[in-house]
Design a protein around this nucleic acid. Structure first.
Lengths: 347, 347
DNA sequence: TAGGTGGTGGAATACGTTTTCCGACAGATC
DNA sequence: GATCTGTCGGAAAACGTATTCCACCACCTA
């Protein structure tokens, strides 16, 4: 057969049913500047409704700019990402745009491949959310690919911290962490362990640095801050805290985890070791994921305005062209039950 | 300007660069059955690579069947949905399909509107995941819309329980709940409260019925099972358990929540009321969300193979045409720390 | 050597929409 | 009453790709 593709009702059908020309039907149904006589307009509208006509997005995209937005994420499963996705979808749908999501499942190699694949959609914008959109990936050709995409008229928005010359919505990990560190110091803690996650990961590193700065500003001696690394997961936190408890706390009165997942794991290990939180030791997280209020005691942590970040990303993706802008959103300190004030004992 | 749309490199450009005709270039780059001479083939490939050519999905979709899949969900934010989305994305990407997600944010009215909007993409399949794709929605014209879509050659897959005549991947809520009920009965519990969620919601109702059946089969008197309703949320569970504790447990030795969220809320209330779980009362959830292992004690619950369900949905969506099939996936009982065996005291 | 045959490149067309251009008609102005 | 102006419907072109059809060439066979 000559065209095995589809069998849907087209604008031709609507025009024929309404007894008008293709052009007139298009003018009524599309967002045209031309006016058509009320009589014709109504006839077209009626026919379209009757036939359940929906304009083909593909065909439309060939004449106009596409109305799809591509989201390329490391992993859509994490709660934070889910929130961002949801916010993006909501923002996009108000402007009639479609959101297509692709996940790289953490493999930077797949990241490049995924972007190349997604480029086929000629999406109006490409939103990249990844923990590490940095050096190694860039070396792999990512930057070149993104530049090529931009050169084709697309727009790149990165959610997360990045040095790359694209629009971005970043989280001020350092400052928020510093605020939390300062709070911990101000509430009388003097011997702190920072559970810093993996080495070389951007966000954990920024948070760790922030913690240290805040603690120092609050009067905690640098020598009294111990930094330990672990996988960024519940298990990682569990292992670290387990080890810590086994070797004895030795005066440690606060444990600052680089995210909630780690903190939750640590909490479990501490409980098993019969170390009371917050009475024996205070514990904090970062991110304010759902689990932070599910556990007991509820976690003192930093809430990230993820939904806002998602909306902001879409705003950048859809906004007027202009200079590259880096939006930074601020985390908010949320004090709950896993920390308490300590009597100010000497050092 | 005549065509303000885009400025990308097209097949024309590649053909010109390779010094061959459009047709030849298409044959090399597309999945054509025709063979082209090695020399030409190589020239085309080289040109395409050099120019970073990617075929335009829109244009391609106009000749062939579209390679996009539409996912319409109530809410992408819930952990379960995130897992399903992720699995779908993974399955789809192996076949080169694109997944576009839309959320209705729980409003059935928006559901119809969303589907209509998404139909513009002429997606090969429409995957609908919603707690309630039922009577009221159907009355609103949903069924007619889906039928129209199917008539156009699309395929509808529903994730969740449904009576609608479309492919579906359902969870056997009833049986899994019965198994859990049976387990609770067999471990010696004799006075049970079922926290049943909202009235009239399909999944909660099926689970409640399953609980009751399993309990009865295990020897729990029907009069010893109390069913209470509440919003399906952590807060809902909290309220219920708070009230329960306030009025005294009166011999209740097990609380069966219709999902983990409710159970987690209940757990908190019980802890505040100084009711020990599982020593004073056993508590169970359903879904096995991440929170189930974050809380202490970790929740005994039913794990749903969500990732499998997502993959299965894509299989149905992409598979050969055939009779409408309803796939049912089984939940798995996961016994953890929030339940314990009771001495068999006379009820 | 002539005619047939298989293989392969190229021109042209179709997909469904938007948009430009043209022509027709009505109303207004002198 | 004639010309100009403005409004609006319709024909046609264009977007980028896949495919059909045609033409050409080389090779093989009789």
């Amino acid at each position: 057969m000559p065209h095995p593709a589809r069998d849907t009702v087209t604008l031709h059908d609507v025009a024929a049913a309404a007894g008008v020309s293709l052009a007139t039907a298009s003018r009524v149904l599309g967002a045209s500047s031309r006016t058509v006589a009320p009589e014709f307009r109504e006839r077209v509208l009626a026919a379209a409704e009757r036939l359940r006509y929906t304009a083909d997005a593909s065909a439309r995209a060939m004449r106009q700019v596409s109305d799809s937005l591509a989201l390329v994420a490391d992993d859509v499963t994490t709660p934070s990402m889910a929130i961002v996705v949801s916010a993006m979808e909501r923002a996009a749908s108000t402007t009639g745009a479609f959101v297509t999501v692709s996940a790289t499942h953490g493999d930077p190699g797949r990241q490049l491949e995924t972007i190349r694949r997604v480029r086929a959609l000629r999406p109006r914008a490409l939103v990249l959310t990844s923990g590490r959109v940095d050096a190694d990936a860039v070396a792999g050709g990512l930057l070149a690919e993104l530049r090529a995409y931009e050169h084709d008229g697309g727009r790149v928005v990165i959610v997360g911290d990045t040095d790359l010359p694209f629009h971005s919505v970043g989280f001020d990990n350092h400052r928020a962490a510093a605020r939390l560190g300062r709070y911990v110091a101000d509430t009388g803690h003097r011997r702190v362990v920072v559970v810093a996650g993996g080495r070389g990961e951007a966000a954990p590193a920024a948070r760790t640095a922030g913690f240290v700065e805040g603690l120092r500003a609050g009067g905690v001696a640098e020598s009294a801050v111990r930094i330990v690394h672990c996988p960024v997961s519940r298990e990682g936190g569990y292992e670290v805290a387990h080890r810590l408890a086994a070797e004895g706390l030795r005066g440690t009165d606060a444990i600052l985890a680089v995210n909630d997942l780690i903190a939750v794991g640590a909490l479990r290990a501490l409980r098993e070791a019969e170390v009371a939180v917050p009475d024996d030791v205070s514990l904090t997280g970062f991110d304010d994921i759902g689990a932070a209020v599910n556990v007991t005691p509820r976690l003192t942590t930093v809430a990230l305005p993820l939904a806002y970040a998602g909306t902001e990303a879409i705003r950048l993706a859809l906004g007027e062209p202009g200079a590259v802008t880096h939006v930074t959103v601020e985390g908010r300190l949320v004090v709950r039950d896993s920390t308490r004030e300590r009597a100010a004992t000497a050092g």
